[in-house]
Simulated assay, not measured.
Amino acid sequence: MTSANTTVPRSALVTGASTGIGEATVRRLRADGWTVFAVARREDRLAALAEETGAVALTADIAEDDDVARLLAIVGETGGIDTLVNVAGGARGADRVAEASVEDWEWMFRVNVLGTLKLTRAFLPMLRATGHGTVLNVTSTAGHVAYEGGAGYNAAKFGQAALNDALRLEEAEHNVRVIEVAPGLVQTEEFALRRLGDADAAAKVYQGVESPLLAEDVADLIAYAVQAPHHVNLAHVTIRPVAQPAAHKLLRGPLG
């Protein structure tokens, strides 16, 4: 996938950078010559990523006000950013509503909705000041279509998608571009494992699927979206593997 690069040096802050889509996005943007601030909670993984790619590693919990304020200060002192890529998030549990864990629901709202809110709110003045700022939020097809056992994650991702839509309306007058990338089934190192808590259960999510998406596939799309000419806004982009033609339909076994 090719991108329309500009001659203006570009800089981004990418959350969820210690694994999966966030890590792949850091690698891709660095390969394209961007200055990248890589943010996550796991210092050891960030340090290794920074050493390999040249990204700036910043350890933080984006749902904590003090951490967000510290990130804003550090980034502001080192030249600022024109692009914010909110990848951090996740799912916990697969309970139906009747057996729902309130603790899991609260965690999902905290990381998916409040984390996105707090970081975006903090960096909006900086993005506006560039005259060509971009916010890209990685949501999920779970934020578009509900399914059994997914109510907590559905609700959190629906909330994040709604935040994104309102933000686009509010920030157009500031020439801040707001993009939503909603992946379907993506095989990453930890997503299913963190959600289900068991390696065997996590493996079954992808069992028999010939070619699920990989984190690098989503990172390619993110790179294209943020490097397109600024007047081009990929406002809502759904990316799924061919084996998943709809949220409720997943083909297991050879295709074609």
Rank of each mutant, 00 (worst) to 15 (best):
Leu214Cys: 10
Leu136Glu: 03
Leu234Ser: 12
Thr188Cys: 04
Val232Asp: 02
Arg194Gln: 14
Ala166Gln: 11
Asp220Tyr: 09
Glu171Lys: 13
Arg128Lys: 13
Ala166Trp: 07
Ile179Asn: 01
Leu119Tyr: 09
His236Trp: 05
Asp200Val: 14
Pro229Met: 08
Leu185Ser: 09
Ala199Leu: 12
Asp220Pro: 07
Met126Ser: 13
Lys249Ala: 14
Ala172Val: 13
Asp217Arg: 07
Leu136Cys: 09
Glu171Tyr: 13
Arg121Met: 06
Leu127Phe: 11
Val176Tyr: 03
Lys157Glu: 08
Ala235Phe: 06
Asn175Lys: 13
Ala146Cys: 08
Ala219Cys: 08
Glu173Leu: 09
Glu210Ala: 11
Pro125Ser: 03
Glu170Met: 09
Val145Leu: 07
Tyr153Val: 00
Gln187Trp: 01
Tyr147Ala: 15
Thr139Arg: 02
Asp220Met: 07
Leu234His: 14
Gly152Trp: 06
Ala247Pro: 06
Thr188Ile: 04
Lys157Asp: 10
Leu185His: 07
Ser211Cys: 09
Arg240Glu: 04
Asn137Gly: 09
Gly152Cys: 12
Val205Asn: 10
Tyr147Glu: 10
Thr120Ile: 09
Ala203Gly: 02
Asp165Phe: 01
Glu171Ser: 04
Ala142Phe: 00
Gly133Glu: 03
Val226Tyr: 01
Thr120Asn: 07
Ala166Cys: 13
Ala215Asp: 01
Ala151Lys: 05
Val186Ala: 04
Ile179Thr: 02
Pro241Val: 01
Thr134Ile: 15
Glu173Lys: 14
Ala151Met: 10
Asn137Arg: 12
